[in-house]
């Protein structure tokens, strides 16, 4: 069977709609990951061991298990306890929570990178704990990890095809239904691959610009 250019061209608009959904999931999920990751990072530095340790266990657990199974868990279990989200929202939450465990490591590296003298200076100025964090530590820790954080946008975007398993109509789902309707699988799957690749490369290029803008500080 040869590549049918006509069929390929006709499927482009629907595939692009799917890619738009993938982008929406990425943006929503990323916002969750940015906020929740910072929360995880701060809780893991808590002075209370009974806060620090359970958070560490939960973060390590989420990070070492497949996103796909976590998505199934959210998709099938949340409704049974009376929490109803749209598939897209469920997917964004799944992506966000999963990647929060990665961003929390990035934040941690940024916080560790703030020189100890800054903490001592804050103590010497008799700043409260909250004020030390918001006025001294975080303003120095966060900008230096922006490039590392930017890289996780791309990683998250490339995980959005997994949302097909929980019925979100993103690019891969659209390609699958196009294949089922027309019995042509080559064209939609090739096109969706090209679309993902192109968008990921554009994002990587943007991330490199961000990296240059914020200077090259490597997070571990």
């Amino acid at each position: 069977m040869n590549f049918d250019w006509r069929a390929a061209w006709d499927s482009v608009p629907r595939l692009l709609d799917g890619m738009l959904v993938a982008l929406q999931a990425t943006v929503l999920g990323y916002l969750i990951a940015l906020v929740l990751g910072l929360v995880f990072a701060l809780l893991r530095r808590s002075q209370q061991p009974w806060v620090r340790m359970p958070v560490a266990v939960v973060v390590e657990f989420i990070r070492s298990t497949p996103l796909l199974v976590q998505l199934f868990f959210l998709f099938f279990v949340l409704p049974t306890i009376g929490i109803e989200f749209s598939p897209l929202a469920t997917g964004a939450i799944g992506l966000g929570v999963h990647y929060a465990t990665y961003t929390s490591e990035v934040y941690r590296a940024g916080i560790d990178g703030v020189p100890p003298g800054q903490w001592e200076a804050a103590t010497a100025l008799n700043l409260s704990r909250r004020r030390t964090w918001t006025a001294v530590i975080l303003p120095q820790a966060v900008p230096r990890v922006v490039p590392a954080l930017a890289n996780y946008v791309i990683a998250m975007f490339k995980d959005t095809p997994q949302l097909t398993a929980i019925t979100v109509l993103e690019g891969l789902s659209v390609a699958r239904s196009l294949g089922a309707e027309t019995f042509r699988y080559l064209e939609p799957f090739t096109l969706v691959g090209i679309m993902y690749l192109t968008m990921a490369l554009v994002m990587a290029w943007l991330a490199r610009i961000v990296e240059r803008r914020f200077g090259r500080v490597r997070a571990v």
């Binding site: 490339k158 891969l172 699958r176 799957f189 090739t190 691959g193 993902y196 990921a200």
Partner: peptide, 16 residues
């Protein structure tokens, strides 16, 4: 291959 989602590659191998 760093730009392509693994799942898309997998679908391509299996179906396309």
């Amino acid at each position: 291959f760093r730009g392509l989602p693994a799942l898309v590659v997998l679908f391509w191998f299996v179906f396309a």
